[in-house]
């Protein structure tokens, strides 16, 4: 058995593409966030750098790169650097199992627009999401600052609490699809109705948990600036701070892609198979459809941020344990009963 260089090259190109895409989308999400905030608050938003302020993300990135880099003297140096790196790494890893489109046929070779179609796709996502807490915890602890530590403890308990409800809401979805592969789930929706029709409650729970997992308002307790002086990244400066902020936007992008794939048909769109266009064109249209769905979800993330105030911490925990988990269990029970009833 020899090393399959062609396979490695294909995957390498695909991985670079997905990575570049998520970075660019995350970059422009910062611009989008400020524009959405401006519209909601009746302001203009960034409009100096380039037309419509479109170069603003580049200016911000440049600023972050050139800022002085400070590592506090009393911090644990290695872990202090490891924290933001882990946050960034984990944020980028989830995108590996998302099907970005159907197959492309180039020179007789069929190329799948998914980095890894593994039959445990959803479990893989859980594994990666459950690792997301390390970056925040290590960074907060290594800073050797009580506010950072408080924020990272908040973040860890929040993420662990909402992971449970998220998992339970997905189990109900898996009962319907019967497959853990994201590609299969999307293909099923391509030939039938979108899963959100069958799982409205499950989708709602997943959405709320996604907000909590991404540390977004109304669940942005780990970075509550007026209680914690800024949150777990208080001691960070320069691009390390940038990594933490950036990881949040990548997480938003990936969870939007996930919600679109799981509940809203992913890269499929109505009437996809009756267009009569060449296979490659349909694939590209499908990718654009997925992208549109992702943008809608990203907008929802921003809209909520500038509309709803922050929860108090005990309210957050009560919502997670006393409302979300029982609701998810109920949803699971109902789905199981219906699946059993239809079989029998």
């Amino acid at each position: 058995m020899t090393i399959d260089w062609y396979f490695i090259l294909e995957k390498l190109i695909l991985i670079s593409g997905v990575l570049a895409l998520s970075l660019i989308v995350a970059m422009y999400s910062t611009w989008g966030e400020r524009k959405v905030a401006a519209v909601i608050q009746d302001r203009r938003g960034p409009n100096r750098a380039g037309p419509l302020g479109l170069l603003q993300p580049l200016a911000d990135g440049g600023k972050l790169f050139f800022k002085e880099e400070i590592i506090p003297a009393s911090s644990h140096r290695f872990l202090f650097i490891l924290g933001p790196s882990l946050a960034m790494l984990v944020a980028c890893m989830t995108s590996a199992v998302i099907p970005w489109g159907d197959t492309l046929v180039i020179a007789g070779q069929e190329i799948s627009l998914q980095v890894a179609d593994i039959n445990i796709g959803i479990l893989y996502i859980f594994g990666v999401v459950s690792l997301g807490v390390y970056g925040i915890m290590l960074g907060g602890w290594a800073s050797n600052n009580k506010y950072s530590l408080l924020a990272s403890v908040r973040a860890a308990s929040q993420i662990i609490s909402y992971e449970l409800a998220m998992g339970l809401s997905l189990i109900a979805l898996l009962m319907l699809t019967g497959s853990l592969s994201l590609k299969d789930i999307v293909e099923q929706q391509r030939h039938g109705l979108w899963n959100v029709v069958y799982q409205p409650l499950g989708f709602l729970i997943f959405l709320v948990c996604a907000f909590a997992e991404c540390n977004r308002t109304p669940f942005d307790l780990p970075e509550a600036e007026n209680e914690l002086n800024g949150g777990y990244h208080l001691e960070y400066s320069s691009m390390k701070l940038g990594f933490y902020l950036f990881a949040e936007y990548i997480n938003m992008f990936v969870s939007s892609a996930l919600m679109a794939s799981l509940y809203f048909g992913g890269y499929s769109f109505p009437g996809m198979d009756s267009l009569g266009l060449p296979h490659n064109v349909v694939t590209i249209l499908g990718f654009l459809a997925l992208f549109l769905k992702i943008l809608v979800f990203l907008f929802l993330f921003m809209w909520v941020r500038w509309t709803i105030p922050r929860f108090r911490y005990d309210q957050l925990m009560r919502l997670g344990w006393n409302v979300m988990i029982p609701l998810a269990l109920l949803n699971m029970l109902i789905t199981g009963a219906i699946v059993l009833f239809r079989q029998g």
């Binding site: 445990i120 479990l123 594994g127």
Partner: peptide, 8 residues
């Protein structure tokens, strides 16, 4: 994957 979810 369960090993990673549960332990790590």
């Amino acid at each position: 994957v369960v090993h990673i979810i549960v332990y790590a």
